[in-house]
């Protein structure tokens, strides 16, 4: 089944979304016209990556079960609660929806929320531009951690039982904090002696994920690779290569966001050619979760179509119960709920 089973009934402000979707569609139609226009009917100077916008169906091993229209159009990042609900960082609010798309609640924030993560006990860690805040599971603020003195720009968070890892795209570092908010290690900074090349971030996309195998996964988009670090900051290994082809990372700077499956395999999200793929922990390309065809508005959106702060049209992904993959399209504010296709003998 290729189309979603049904759309959710996130009813509130739906008419607004419809209006926004209409505008987005008009913009996209304009862009598509532009790309085929020119003197005569075709643009002799067209920039074409069209061949890479089509995915070999044999490589797609996931099926879309549902599409959730979020009521928050500034939706930027996702996290999964211990109950399997989805938390959405969306402008000056933290939203929560059930896996079937019903809106549960909305917690107002004092500033635009840029990333979010949830601990096993339900504690919520929220990343703002230059500081982190900690919330109880019920949304009550527990602590505001000290503002970073650096040119910070927090874009990703991962939580373990005793540490909070915050990806600071501005300072190009992963900061390890203890649970009281003290910085206890700096990870991923350029260090010749430790053979660490440093993060190259043309735009603010630095993500960090944790897996019980004991290694952090961090994207290094300007180097088109994923790097694996110990919690102490030793770079264990890295993989990835630049190519528009499906097995690599496209454009100037990808992947932009990551998620981890329960067995440690990696889910990667790309912008420009919006697509989501699965790799083994050691970097073997395994399959496509969702190809560019699934995100037409996102693919046509340009650098100016983001949040006006350096981020732009992109995708985020999280892994929920039963290794279901939830993909957030920041252009349409939709979540695509993806499940592994049943195999022939299942």
């Amino acid at each position: 089944m290729n189309s979603p089973a049904h759309s959710s009934r996130c009813s509130r402000r739906r008419f607004l979304l419809r209006g926004a979707a209409g505008t987005a569609a008009a913009v996209v139609a304009g862009r598509q016209r532009g790309r085929t226009a020119g003197s005569g009917d075709t643009n002799p100077y067209a920039y074409s990556v069209g061949v890479h916008e089509k995915t070999d169906p044999a490589l797609v091993k996931y099926v879309e079960r549902r599409r959730i229209d979020l009521p928050w159009k500034e939706a930027r990042r996702l996290a999964v609660t211990p109950q399997g609900n989805l938390l959405v960082a969306a402008g000056q609010r933290l939203g929560e929806v059930t896996p079937d798309g019903s809106a549960v609640r909305e917690v107002p924030m004092a500033a635009p929320l840029r990333c979010v993560a949830v601990a096993a006990d339900g504690t919520i860690y929220a990343g703002f531009r230059a500081h982190l805040e900690v919330f109880e599971a019920d949304g009550k603020r527990r602590a505001t951690w000290e503002k970073s003195p650096e040119r910070s720009w927090f874009t990703g968070i991962a939580v373990t039982d005793d540490a909070v890892f915050a990806a600071d795209a501005g300072a190009r570092v992963i900061l390890r904090h203890d649970l009281a908010g003290q910085v206890t290690a700096r990870i991923g900074e350029r260090d010749k002696d430790r053979d660490i090349p440093g993060f190259v971030l043309p735009s603010p996309y630095l993500d960090v994920e944790w897996h019980p195998d004991g290694l952090l996964r961090v994207n290094n988009p300007g180097r088109h690779r994923v790097e694996f670090y110990t919690p102490d900051g030793a770079l264990e290994f890295a993989w990835g290569r630049p190519t528009m082809a499906i097995e690599g990372f496209s454009g100037c700077c990808n992947p932009v966001n990551l998620a981890v499956l329960s067995d440690g395999r990696l889910v990667t999200c790309e912008k420009g050619l919006p697509r989501v793929k699965v790799y083994s922990a050691h970097g073997d390309f395994e399959c496509v979760v969702a190809g560019t065809e699934m995100f037409p508005e996102n693919a046509q959106a340009g650098a100016g179509d983001g949040f006006g702060d350096g981020t732009r049209a992109s995708l985020d992904a999280v892994v929920g119960p039963e290794d279901r993959i939830y993909i957030l399209d920041t252009v349409t504010a939709q979540i695509h709920v993806m499940e592994r296709k049943p195999t022939a003998n299942s």
């Binding site: 990556v49 454009g251 700077c253 340009g302 650098a303 100016g304």
Partner: peptide, 15 residues
């Protein structure tokens, strides 16, 4: 003024 580079930069880069 063909805009080919502009499209490449806008599609994948910072515009």
């Amino acid at each position: 003024g063909c805009g080919k580079c502009v499209e490449g930069c806008n599609r994948f880069g910072n515009g």
